[in-house]
């Protein structure tokens, strides 16, 4: 290496004058204090702004909770609907409403069972349970409900 560039002589003082010196003072010079009024105004605006964000956050949480509940409801519905499609538990369509004796939204053997109990006890027999339309509610109507419950093709 050349000794010419290895040593820098420093005598302890640097002095910068002119425009460059002013710029340095602006950047690194003593900072001026912020007036209290400005400080309060900024704080007040910040609080207002954060308050709005917080309320948005609350709405967001409520929306998430509502979505979770909706997901459960949809799951329950889909579960039933799928079951109906596979013929396990038919969701009641317009034609099957008469057979849904217990009004739980599907026709299964429990409907026939409930009807059988009512017919046997001869109490609370509703005229609308006359499934076969022969004018009386009896064993034939119970059979009709049961037959509907075990139908392979529920839609047919």
């Amino acid at each position: 290496m050349n000794d010419k560039y290895d040593k820098i002589e420093y005598d302890g003082e640097f002095e910068v004058n002119g425009e460059f010196g002013e710029d340095l003072k602006t950047v690194y010079g003593a900072k001026r204090g912020v007036p209290v009024e400005v400080d309060r105004a900024i704080l007040s605006e910040a609080r207002k702004h954060l308050g709005k964000k917080r309320s948005r956050l609350r709405i967001g949480r409520w929306a998430i909770s509502a979505a979770a509940v909706a997901a459960v409801v949809v799951f329950a519905f889909v579960h039933n609907y799928d079951a109906g499609d596979s013929g396990q538990m038919a969701m009641v369509d317009m034609e099957a409403v008469k057979e849904d004796i217990d009004r739980n939204g599907r026709v299964d053997i429990l409907d026939a069972f409930v009807l059988a109990r009512r017919v046997e006890a001869s109490e609370g027999v509703d005229a609308e349970w006359d499934i076969n339309g022969d004018g009386i509610v009896d064993g034939k109507d119970i059979d009709a409900v049961a037959v509907r419950a075990v139908r392979i093709n529920k839609g047919a």
Binding site: I109, F113, V150, I152
Partner: peptide, 21 residues
Amino acid sequence: PPYYDPAALMKGRIILAKFST
């Protein structure tokens, strides 16, 4: 015999149901 759909005969799927009072 339980209730079943006669249409299930000669097929591979059937629903059986029965109750007793």
